[in-house]
Design a protein around this nucleic acid. Sequence first.
DNA 1: TAGATTGTTAATCGATTAACAATC
DNA 2: TAGATTGTTAATCGATTAACAATC
Lengths: 205, 205
Amino acid sequence: MAVIRRLPKYHRYLGELLEKDVTRISSYELSKLTGFTASQIRQDFNNFGGFGQQGYGYNVEDLYNQLGNILGLGKKYNTIIIGAGNLGQAIANYKSFDDKGFRMLALFEKNPKLVGLTIRDIDILDIDSIESFSKENKIDIAVITTPKSQAQDVVNRVVNCGVKAIWNFAPIDLKVPEDVVVENVQLSESLLTIAFLLKEKEENV
Amino acid sequence: MAVIRRLPKYHRYLGELLEKDVTRISSYELSKLTGFTASQIRQDFNNFGGFGQQGYGYNVEDLYNQLGNILGLGKKYNTIIIGAGNLGQAIANYKSFDDKGFRMLALFEKNPKLVGLTIRDIDILDIDSIESFSKENKIDIAVITTPKSQAQDVVNRVVNCGVKAIWNFAPIDLKVPEDVVVENVQLSESLLTIAFLLKEKEENV
DNA sequence: TAGATTGTTAATCGATTAACAATC
DNA sequence: TAGATTGTTAATCGATTAACAATC
């Protein structure tokens, strides 16, 4: 699990190298870019198979594609966003998510003032149409950007609709069946970490 | 460091317990809430001093306040948001950040169509007024919600203005002097993790 | 061939869990 | 006092780093 948190970063840097037409890279050079140790990088890649070549290093394009496969890119993921406030709209606007295979199909919203609008051609639908929508479209991932108070309720609903992964931005620990993946983005916890580090820094002066 | 990532979660649950007028809690009960083991919880708290009482457990209010202090709450942090797109606006709208002591003073934006607007009474200022603004207001934290291409540049500018912590939402590893705290929120990496877990789940069926 | 760099094993480090004496 | 639960030490586990033989 510690490894897979590093994979997206490798993938990102390899994508950048690819754009710069770099064809090969050693674990040492990659360690300078990513900040991980060369030893760790080699260990990480070897968990998934030997992608390198002794005396040469790694082929950037090959490694990029291999990591893409491991990360489950190449597949398409039908994704809906529940909660069309600023955060939901921000996510709908990220074109790069679509590019990575996360198809943003629709936003769902309770507030009637927002229903009917579109964000980058993505419709904002009434929240009560989740069930009917999911019958016509197999949903893989639901993004939860509702207020905390509605989060568990909408999650129950989408899980009933067969959603297998939740990307949760509400400040709450969701209860889901064990076969449903939950990835939390706890902004508040991230911000508190900053406060802690700032305070610690001050004390160590 | 692993400990301090857990502190905000403890703090959140203790806040909820406090609202429910729960006065005491044992490490065992807290383990059921948070999902951490009771042993780990006791270890964590003991890193910062003995907050409990044998045979009784922990006083919820006392523990909540102690953790708040450790997390650096109670202090006020002057915060600016750079980039007034959806994400910047979303963060400006989070009232709970203000409540925790993160004073959102202003948003800064390049796009002239947005400059002059206000989000929840927070002005959107021209990005070129960062320097003059920081002379009148000591800024502690800068939130980076600009596009990737502008992120490093604005970070250089705010660091020059004396900002000591960066909350970075741009998909890039920022270069900062070593005394500047950077906390990254890499949405794309978080989403890729979901893809990986979904794929892995499928393969293990 | 010599040099470079991987793949992989062993050593180290740190974090988590288990156990239990201390004590409220 | 008996029961409950912490504080704390020791044991375990997992992740990281170091080292080096294999090999391109």
